[in-house]
Amino acid sequence: MAEPITLHDPDDPRLHDYTDLTDVQLRRRREPAEGLFIAEGEKVIRRAVAAGHEMRSMLLSAKWLDVMRDVIETTPAPVYVVEPGLAEQVTGYHVHRGALASMRREPLPAVADLLRTASAPGRGEGTARRVAVFEDIVDHANVGAAFRNAAALGVDAVLLTPRCADPLYRRSVKVSMGAVFQVPWTRLESWPADIETLRSAGFTVAALCLSDRSVTLDELAARDHDRLALLFGTEGTGLTPGALAAADEHVRIPMDAGVDSLNVAAASAVAFYATRPRTA
C-alpha cells in the first residue's frame, strides 16, 4: 500500500491521466494510444479491479479515503488526494462521485479466440450461444447502455466494428455501471467480411432492420437457434448495405402507434431478452 499523496497544483504532471476528460477527441487520441482508461465512481472502480485491470493511479477527494480504504490497501498504485475544486479544474467537470482511477488497458483478443472461449455466467467456458454485434455505434452512452443490457440478459460476447465508440471511454463505462468489464468483447478488423468468421463458428447472423424480407422477433425467437449473433446498426441510417447483404436473417421488432424503430440500446434489450436460450 502506498500512502496517499495530497496534491495542490493542477499542472502537477502526476495528474496527467485525468486532464481534460470532457474533451472527447482528446480522449479518443490519448486513452488507446497511452494504454489507459478512466473508471469513475466507487462501484465502477471496484468492478474494474475485480475484472483484473491494473490500476495506474487513483484520484480521490478526502472524504473517499475511508470508503476506498480496502482498495487502496491492495494496490501499489499511487493515490492522489485533491480538493473537489482542484479535481474539477483538472478534469474539466464536477467530479460529483469523488473518485476516479486511471486503469491500464488489456490487449483485445482475436475474434475467433473470443467466440471459442466467451460465455455468460453459468454457461461454462467455450459454450457461447448469444453474441451481440454493434456496427458504427458512435454514441458513448448507447454503447455503455448496450453493454449493461448484454451483461444483464445473458449475452456471451460483444463484437464492435472498427468505427464503434470506445466501451472504455469514461462515459461508456459510467453508463454501463461497469458492465463493460463483465462482458467479453473485442473489435472486428475487416467488416463486414468478419460475418463469415461468425458463420464459420456456427452462428446464425440476424440483422435487426426494416426490410421486405424481415421476420418478426417472435418468429426468430421461436426458432431457438443454438448459436445466434444479433446485429445492430445506428439509429440514423441503420445497418450498412454490406452488413445487410451478409446477414442470414433480417429481423424486426413489431411497433405500434406509428413508431418505426427504437433507440439501439432499447432495441438490444428487447432482442436479448426475446432470444435468450431456452435451455442451458
Rank of each mutant, 00 (worst) to 15 (best):
175 V>C: 05
201 A>S: 14
200 S>F: 09
186 T>R: 01
167 P>Q: 06
166 D>C: 03
202 G>D: 02
176 S>R: 00
227 R>Q: 14
172 S>Y: 05
213 R>Q: 15
179 A>H: 04
200 S>P: 02
218 D>T: 15
180 V>C: 00
210 L>A: 15
239 L>K: 06
180 V>Q: 00
182 Q>Y: 00
182 Q>V: 00
230 L>W: 07
240 T>Y: 03
169 Y>Q: 13
231 L>T: 03
177 M>K: 04
232 F>H: 06
209 C>D: 12
237 T>W: 10
169 Y>F: 15
227 R>L: 07
215 V>K: 15
221 A>P: 12
216 T>K: 06
240 T>C: 07
195 I>P: 04
215 V>D: 13
168 L>R: 10
175 V>T: 11
211 S>Q: 11
185 W>N: 06
210 L>V: 15
228 L>G: 01
239 L>A: 10
227 R>N: 08
167 P>E: 01
171 R>S: 00
184 P>L: 09
170 R>Y: 03
169 Y>S: 09
198 L>C: 06
198 L>E: 01
194 D>C: 08
179 A>C: 09
166 D>I: 05
184 P>G: 09
236 G>D: 03
193 A>N: 08
198 L>K: 04
196 E>T: 12
221 A>Y: 12
166 D>N: 15
232 F>N: 05
186 T>P: 02
190 S>Y: 11
233 G>W: 07
202 G>C: 11
211 S>A: 15
167 P>Y: 01
236 G>F: 12
187 R>K: 14
236 G>I: 00
224 D>H: 13
192 P>N: 06
184 P>M: 10
188 L>C: 13
171 R>Q: 08
234 T>P: 00
191 W>C: 09
225 H>R: 14
225 H>V: 12
219 E>D: 15
207 A>E: 02
216 T>D: 12
213 R>M: 14
206 A>M: 07
215 V>P: 09
221 A>G: 11
239 L>G: 04
237 T>H: 15
196 E>F: 05
235 E>Y: 01
193 A>L: 11
166 D>G: 05
203 F>L: 14
233 G>Q: 00
240 T>W: 02
210 L>S: 14
203 F>H: 11
199 R>V: 13
179 A>M: 02
200 S>A: 15
205 V>F: 06
213 R>N: 14
201 A>G: 05
177 M>T: 06
173 V>R: 00
204 T>S: 08
185 W>H: 15
179 A>P: 03
181 F>R: 02
198 L>T: 00
198 L>D: 01
240 T>D: 09
177 M>A: 14
178 G>E: 02
239 L>R: 08
183 V>R: 01
